[in-house]
């Protein structure tokens, strides 16, 4: 399965993605946590220190003058699976973290890494790896194609007016940009069952998971610990486990074949 989590900044995307990826990996699957957020965050949830592990510049070669295609391609002999194994950081429960690198000043610094990242995601065998993506907060990056590897778009929504407004803006991409994706909502930090109903009503989306506010997760976060390490028996982890189960039942297998836009692009 290939799911990209989007939503307002601070809605809980990284925490959910890291926990989701690890629980999925515990069922024996090959899981790649895909990080396109230039801010750190996902590392914590995967039990990794905040690391700078960008894909190195020499992973790609520049295309020859006058030829078609992207400016940079993985260097000859390096396929997507080998590149993942070489440049993906190995996190807790065997999850591979694939990140195109954090901003180190000039945006130009990470262009090669971005090309490599993009090509790896395009070419990783669909039937072997699950991709669970953590997108930057807000609405800007989802617009620029950073979610194109995904079959399912999950919008993380807290029960707040600003989070609802963000979800509605993202959801407005459903009929055009994301027309061939499943677009669903995941409610986060809910305090009572009525919050989940409100999230559904105010976002206009089907809610497929509801993570309760969990004091244990908040405490773990203060210490820089992942929920699975700091609050493994709490209600948050239980709710993410239920979401994993739901997604395996509902979204597993190749949805890509149903996606004419992607096929046209490929």
């Amino acid at each position: 399965m290939r799911i990209a989590f989007v939503g307002k900044g601070g809605a809980g995307k990284s925490t959910i993605v890291g926990t989701f990826a690890r629980l999925l990996a515990r069922t024996g699957r090959d899981v790649v946590a895909v990080d396109s957020d230039p801010m750190p965050g996902l590392s914590f949830a995967l039990g990794l220190p905040v690391i700078e592990r960008p894909i190195p510049d020499d992973a790609v070669v520049e295309k020859a003058e006058g030829t078609e295609g992207p400016r940079y391609r993985l260097r000859p002999g390096l396929d997507a699976t080998a590149a993942l194994q070489a440049y993906g950081a190995l996190g807790a429960d065997g999850v591979r973290l694939l990140s195109f690198g954090k901003t180190r000043g000039d945006w130009g610094d990470i262009i090669r890494g971005q090309h490599a990242w993009s090509q790896i995601l395009d070419e990783l065998p669909h039937d072997r790896f699950d991709l669970i993506g953590d997108l930057p907060g807000g609405t800007r990056q989802p617009m620029t194609g950073w979610s194109k590897y995904a079959d399912v778009i999950a919008i993380v929504v807290e029960p707040t007016a600003k989070s609802f407004a963000t979800a509605r803006r993202l959801s407005s991409l459903r009929d055009s940009k994301w027309a061939y994706h499943h677009v669903v909502a995941v409610a986060n930090r809910i305090s009572e069952p009525a919050d989940t109903v409100t999230v559904a009503q105010r976002s206009g989306l089907r809610v497929v998971g509801a993570m309760p506010f969990d004091e244990g997760v908040a405490s773990a976060d203060r210490l820089g610990m992942a929920p699975l390490d700091g609050a493994p028996d709490g209600p948050f982890v239980a709710a993410v486990a239920a979401l994993v189960e739901y997604c395996v039942a509902r979204f597993d297998g190749s949805l890509k074949s149903q996606n004419p836009i992607k096929e046209a692009v490929a």
Binding site: K8, G137, G138, T139, A161, K162, A165, R168, R169
Partner: peptide, 19 residues
């Protein structure tokens, strides 16, 4: 200046007017 602009909500202008 946020591309996901919510300041109107926090100022008290309201959801609809903000949008």
């Amino acid at each position: 200046c946020d591309t996901n602009p919510n300041l109107g909500i926090s100022l008290g202008v309201g959801d609809d007017e903000t949008e």
